[in-house]
Amino acid sequence: MFPEGCARVSDAVVRREPLSGGTYNTVTRVTLQDGSEWVVKVPPPAGTPRLRYEHGLLYGEAVYFGAAAAVSAPVPEVVQAEFGGAEPFLAMSALPGVPWHQAGPLTDQERGSLRRELGRLVGRAHTVAGPGFGYPGEPWGPLVPTWREAFTAMTDAVLDDAERYGARLPLPVDHIRKVLAGSADVLDEVSRPALVHFDLWEGNILVDGAPGARGIGGIIDGERMFWGDPVADFVSLALFGDIEDDKDFLAGYGETGGPLAFDASVRRRLALYRGYLHLIMLVEVVPRVYPPEQVEWAAREVAPRLTEALGALSG
């Protein structure tokens, strides 16, 4: 059932198809009478347990798509939205293709070509500068002038969530706060708030075309976006891996975003952002009531990587 405010969809829809893969919003693909296709996102009802950063996700996603479209990135067009009131929603155009991890086998040559194309797209998105640092949606309030202030607030919030929900972490919350604070000085080297997606794993990259001639059909699910350090995007782009090993992506990125030297500062910042993402992944299993097998997967696969990231910082 669609929100009443989404009248153009409710009145003209001829087909509805629930989409899987999302873990927070309810997502539906609809076909309208004129043949156009939209994707409609509806957040959980008010009062549903959630992490603090998950408030205002739809607004942040709309901000990401509008900003990325300004540099011709293949992102959905926001066609209708309501961010306040009793029935918030986001309706956007559907893009061609399927999620990368569902596209089937790729040859080494095809994968290399796709990673270079993706690098060019991400590099172009990173040329977009924001008005300040942080999450643009509520309850965060106005953007702040420094990346250290913004990122400290972000990590403090997820650690507060960990305590509130009794999340299973591999180290005490106070110790994690101390390690993150001990490396916060490196954040002062980031002076320009870039457009960061922060969820660029292959499930949010659409691949389109026939085998052997596939290209990037779109970048979707920008709901975790923020204005910050572009280096932060490299964490999900190499989830559980090392972006330095992805020579094809880095070659494409260098064409549009400029060359990137993986010096001590960049590697230290990457460890901070890995820690932040892994904290989110470990804490969210509680309010989202993940099944036991997913909870155990997080404890087995994510928790050691959080420990590794914190070890890199304290070392």
Rank of each mutant, 00 (worst) to 15 (best):
Q33D: 06
V173H: 03
A125D: 10
I176R: 07
V78I: 01
L250W: 06
L114S: 01
T127M: 08
E87F: 00
G56C: 06
I243K: 15
V40C: 09
L306K: 12
V14W: 02
A70H: 05
E77D: 11
G228T: 06
A184K: 06
K41H: 02
W227L: 04
Y24E: 08
V14C: 00
A213D: 15
A210E: 15
L206I: 06
G112T: 04
A309M: 09
D188G: 06
V173A: 04
L95G: 00
T155W: 13
T23V: 12
I205G: 08
A251N: 12
Q80W: 09
G241M: 04
G84H: 09
F234P: 01
Y24Q: 03
R124T: 03
P193H: 02
F226D: 09
M154Y: 13
R300Y: 06
L272G: 11
R214F: 08
F83T: 07
P211V: 11
Q33E: 04
W227H: 01
R29G: 02
H101E: 12
V144D: 05
L272P: 14
M154F: 13
D245E: 15
K178F: 00
H278Q: 14
E17F: 02
V186D: 14
E117I: 01
D156T: 12
V144S: 08
G141T: 11
Q80T: 10
G254F: 00
G222E: 00
A309Y: 10
S314R: 04
L95E: 04
G203Q: 10
F65D: 14
Y290S: 10
P105Y: 03
A125M: 15
W147K: 09
D11P: 00
H55I: 00
D242N: 13
S93E: 03
V286K: 09
P139H: 01
L187V: 08
S93V: 05
P259K: 14
L159V: 06
E255R: 10
D174S: 15
T48E: 03
F2M: 03
G257W: 13
E117P: 13
D233K: 09
P136V: 14
G137C: 02
F65C: 12
G60P: 01
Q80V: 08
V27E: 05
G97P: 02
P287V: 03
E110Y: 05
S36F: 01
R274E: 15
F226K: 12
I205A: 09
R274V: 10
W201K: 05
V158N: 07
R168L: 10
W227G: 05
L282S: 08
A303S: 11
L200A: 11
A73M: 11
P136N: 01
D245V: 13
L195Y: 13
F133P: 13
G85W: 09
P259D: 03
P170L: 04
P193W: 06
Y253W: 09
A271C: 08
H101Y: 13
G35Q: 03
V128K: 11
S10F: 04
Y24D: 06
Q33W: 02
V295N: 11
G132E: 05
E4P: 04
L260A: 13
R15V: 01
R168N: 12
A81Q: 05
P170G: 09
G97H: 08
G212I: 00
E87D: 10
A194Q: 10
N204G: 02
A271G: 11
